[in-house]
């Protein structure tokens, strides 16, 4: 392959490599979160008083609303990517990214409220059920927080090289991460709160 030809193809290959890198990372995250889900499953299966001691303190309607908030944020990620990749719409991208940040913050606010209610009810990190619960939901919340920081960077810190119709891989990679965090919550919502 000539040097000139390599220069022409390199940016495309580099972009695909970045996306591949995100998927490799997400593959690792799958192992990480499955081990955390197993922690919850193990606690529930080895303690028969789960419902009486812990589940009755959980507010399912509030967390269902929080789940809806996170699912909605995923829809805004798709809208953000659509706005820039099909229309090159900078304003649409900005508005949708802003919505993602707001919804992410609302989700974290809902989680903080739930945690404060549990602390008030005497469920804390030293509790048999509190320990795995706070570990798992806390690590998921940390992922949401990292996602919010990532979105803030894309919205405000990336203005020198704005995304275009042709160059929007940064948004796509962020979207993959955010959707993954949403998937993890869909599973946690079912295992911790509903079953």
């Amino acid at each position: 392959m000539s040097e000139m030809h390599m220069q022409e193809t390199a940016p495309v290959a580099q972009q695909e490599n970045t996306k591949l890198g995100i998927w490799v990372f997400l593959g690792g995250e799958v192992v990480f979160f499955i081990s955390l889900i197993l922690l919850i499953a193990f606690t529930r299966l080895t303690h028969t008083d789960y419902d009486a001691q812990f589940r009755e303190h959980l507010s399912i309607p509030i967390i269902a609303l929080n789940t809806f908030v996170l699912v909605t944020s995923s829809y805004f990620v798709v809208r953000a990517l659509e706005a820039i990749s099909y229309k090159g719409d900078q304003k649409g991208l900005r508005n949708n990214m802003l919505m993602i940040i707001v919804l992410g913050l609302i989700f974290l606010g809902g989680q903080a409220f739930e945690w404060s209610e549990l602390f008030a009810a005497g469920v804390d990190l030293g509790n048999t059920y509190g320990s795995p619960f706070f570990t798992v939901t806390g690590l998921h919340g940390t992922h949401v927080f990292v996602g919010i920081l990532w979105a803030v960077y894309l919205l405000f810190g990336h203005r020198r090289m704005p995304f275009t119709k042709e160059n929007h891989l940064g948004i796509e990679n962020f979207g993959l991460y955010w959707h993954f965090v949403d998937i993890v919550w869909i599973i946690l919502f079912t295992i911790i709160y509903l079953i």
């Binding site: 591949l20 998927w23 997400l26 593959g27 799958v30 499955i34």
Partner: peptide
Amino acid sequence: VFGYLFMAGCVLSIPL
């Protein structure tokens, strides 16, 4: 390939 990478994470969790 991306789907395989995601599935690999699930398969790697089987020993756990």
